[in-house]
Design a protein around this nucleic acid. Sequence first.
DNA 1: TCTGGGGTCCTAGGACCC
DNA 2: TCTGGGGTCCTAGGACCC
Length: 516
Amino acid sequence: MEGVDSRSVASGAVDDGPGEADAARPATDGGTLPGSDVGDDADEPDRVVCHVDMDCFYASCERLRDPDLRGEPVVVGMGYEPGETVGAVATASYEARAFGVESATPISEALDRLPRRADADPADPDAPDPDETGRYLPVDMAFYEEVAEEVKAVLRDCADVLREVSVDEAYLDVTDRTAWDAVGGDDPEPSAAAGPSEVRTLAEGYARHVKQRIEREAGVPASVGVAPNMSAAKVASDADKPDGLVVVPPGSVATFLAPLPTAALHGVGPVTERALAERGIETAGDVADADPETLAEAFGDRGRALVRRARGKDDREVTPRGLPKSLSRESSLPRTTDEERKRETVAALAADVARRARERGCLYRTIGIKAVLPPFDVNTRARSLPGPVDDPDLVEEVALELLSEFADDEVRKLGVRVSNLDFSEGDQATLGGFEGTGRDRGDDLDRGGPAGRDGREGTGATITDWIGGGSADDGETGHGDSDESDTVSEGEAVSGTDDAPERRTDDGQASLGDWS
DNA sequence: TCTGGGGTCCTAGGACCC
DNA sequence: TCTGGGGTCCTAGGACCC
């Protein structure tokens, strides 16, 4: 992926003048034989990338099991139940959005704009008009994941390469399943989709097929964008929601993007949008016309990538999502300085994170906390261990220690995270001690540690051997013995002891797309 | 609009090593 | 004793995404 990007090479159009070099390039006709131009730096063949984005997914799932909710304003969120004081909207149906209730709206505000149906007592003249009330439901992630699994089954069937971005969103590379050729040959039919495409292409038909299969087989609506790259496909799926199908054929990407506000680009959030506006850059077209180096000065590599994507260039390949990099849990609490309350909260979060790590069969080497102080001051602290572990007690211990720095502070939110994850355990088992992680093996050889390859096999060393049973301050001593980590894992990493629905297809990468 | 929870990636500075 | 530059790891924070 990297390197490909070094726009210098070949191409001649080194700094493709503002605008179009790429956009102007004609779509490759379907007649080109793959590989016919080996050895030269010709443009890569156009890909066909679909981005599938489920429409207000949680709300759609709720409607799936309760058809009475269809056509009603539906708000799915958390924190509005009695006793809860903090929370936000997770998903609002489009009917609810008409009342100004959107994802991330604080629940109190949502209730102001759209009272809950239960409060609409017809006998009470002061009660809200039932027509201006909504149905509020708590998040039921387990159910949404069931539905998502059916959606994914369709997607897997429709694409060789699938990247699941989240429970309700995925990229598909369908280059091998379809093409950009116009339907009808010399007498092409007009496109039936939204977007710049004037003629109907095979890709359009394929995307519609995917969309319809999702609706038919999973029972929930999706919006689909089709384009020659990920970035454009993503914007396209967003361009005609809900229930949209937007086709952006090769050669028209920059034109398609140009009139959109910068915020429509993936990677432009409120901060970047503002910073761009200060430079007079308001639309994607403005971004495309900007000098990449100028934006790089302001935004680093992101700035360069932004310009490229606005010009319709994005070389990223669709790849399955890899293993997670971190696991975390956090929770808001009424502002408090109560140390015991804080410690209890962190201990509970730590236990939960450690449990999830164990369920997924992963070890972690870094333990961290997050403390959010009013008004919204985010602080993170982390400590790395000499080697990867699976040790819930240690997570709690380290987390509480890190928390002590904030003992006197008022907090509004606390979190615990483990990172530096290590999933190699399973591999090691199958490889029969032949393998260690890179760093561990290196250490072994260097030091010829206390337990050589063989010695390590059966020893039941525990974490306490090298971190000390007590405070992680002992970590010092641990350094020299970090090669024990493998052993530690063997003794500690009992995976899947809980009954949690662990759907590992044991396909390595692919299976992990399921988590979350 | 003062903000829920779970993630990702990037950057910058410091420590440490060679 | 003063000096250099490169590489890697770690921590903290920030922006962004769904």
